[in-house]
Computed example of a mutant assay.
Amino acid sequence: MKKIFFAATLTALFTTNAQADTVGLYLGGQIWQSEASGVFGEESQLIDFNLKKEQQVNYFVAIEHPLPLLPNVRISSTTLDTTGNTTFLQEFSFGDEVFPDGETVDANFKVSYIDYSVYYELFDNSGFSFDIGGSVRSFMDDITIAGPPDFIDECTPIDIPNHCITNGESIEITQKGKIDTDELVPMLYLASQFNIPLTNVSIFAQGDFSLVSDHSLSDYQVGLSYRLIKSRMGDFNLTLGYRVVRMEFEDLDNLYTELDFKGVFFGAIAHF
């Protein structure tokens, strides 16, 4: 349902741009080499699963207009998808499954979110801009902990990993604990850009910060933007920067985290 809403919003943005010449449309994306560190689990047991460094792809669309009373709109999509593994030193519970001590498990950590932001441009001139507004972050999490295969009696292993055949049927026998979350979190949105005089280079900073006490979330980036193309049809910029996402969840559908994702990104922004 959220994907349908996201697609419908994008369509509305494009339609608005086609009908109003004074409206500016921004399309952008990033390739981000994120390195994960920290722990997650349930309330009394937070574990370091040695999450791997992974490449993520993020993108956004924004629309700005000259109407002073109406806010500008920005929608961005981020995915944090990584894996890891560890050996438990004590009994561990996750997603209604209990894993014994000494068990070696694989973790599949996938958190994606869409930010729906509205903001106002407090300053906007040829040298400096500053935006402030609010966001609603829509989380869609899927975290799975899987133990090793544990074949049961009279079950014959087959070529499919973690499956066997019993009574002529293939069954999965790997112990898995899984937590799915679906929650909306309000956040403060800030963005600023400073154009270096007599160059095509600008310095930018952007961030979202949680406004609720249950969770401590921050997502910010700083970097350089280089204007590669400037024409009557539009502009095209290349960006290089560093991004940090910090997630401290307190009982997000029984999920607790103290995690950081950080690393260098390369991106591009088109303005029409």
Rank of each mutant, 00 (worst) to 15 (best):
G241M: 06
V23T: 11
A146N: 06
G29Q: 02
D251Q: 02
A36C: 09
Y116K: 09
I203T: 05
C164I: 12
T104K: 07
Q19F: 15
D101V: 05
E248G: 13
V61H: 00
A12H: 08
V118S: 01
S76P: 04
T181I: 08
T83Q: 08
I145N: 00
S135Y: 03
V245D: 13
F60Q: 00
G263A: 10
E258H: 15
P100D: 04
F139G: 11
S135G: 04
L67A: 14
S213I: 01
R246W: 09
H271T: 05
H215Y: 06
E64V: 02
P197K: 03
G168D: 08
H271W: 01
T174P: 08
I173R: 12
S192Y: 07
K176T: 12
F88I: 03
Q193L: 04
T86L: 07
S112L: 03
F249E: 10
F128Y: 12
D214M: 01
V264N: 06
E35G: 15
S37K: 11
F194V: 07
L188W: 08
S117T: 06
T79C: 08
D208S: 08
R74S: 02
F60Y: 05
H163L: 13
Q30W: 01
K230R: 04
E103R: 07
S112A: 09
L211P: 03
K2Q: 13
S76V: 01
F6Q: 09
T174C: 11
V245F: 15
D180A: 11
F139N: 11
F265N: 07
S135P: 02
L51K: 06
D253W: 08
E91L: 02
D124G: 06
F6W: 10
E64G: 03
K53D: 14
L217A: 07
Q55K: 13
T15W: 10
S77R: 06
K110V: 11
V105W: 02
V118M: 03
Q221N: 11
G28V: 00
T156Y: 14
D208H: 07
T87W: 11
V39K: 14
I158F: 14
D81H: 12
G223L: 09
V61E: 02
E250V: 08
K262L: 10
S170N: 15
I75V: 05
P100L: 04
I145M: 01
H163F: 15
D81C: 11
L67V: 13
Q33H: 12
V264Y: 09
E250A: 10
F139K: 10
D21C: 12
L188M: 10
T22R: 15
E183N: 09
D182P: 06
E183M: 05
I31F: 07
L224S: 02
R243T: 10
D124F: 05
V73D: 03
Q30Y: 02
R243P: 09
V118Y: 04
T181A: 11
L255P: 05
V222G: 12
Y256G: 08
D214E: 05
A270L: 01
I4D: 13
H215A: 01
A191C: 05
G223N: 09
P161W: 06
N162S: 12
V245M: 13
Y256V: 07
I132F: 06
Y220V: 13
C164D: 12
R246V: 15
N167S: 12
I179C: 07
A146L: 05
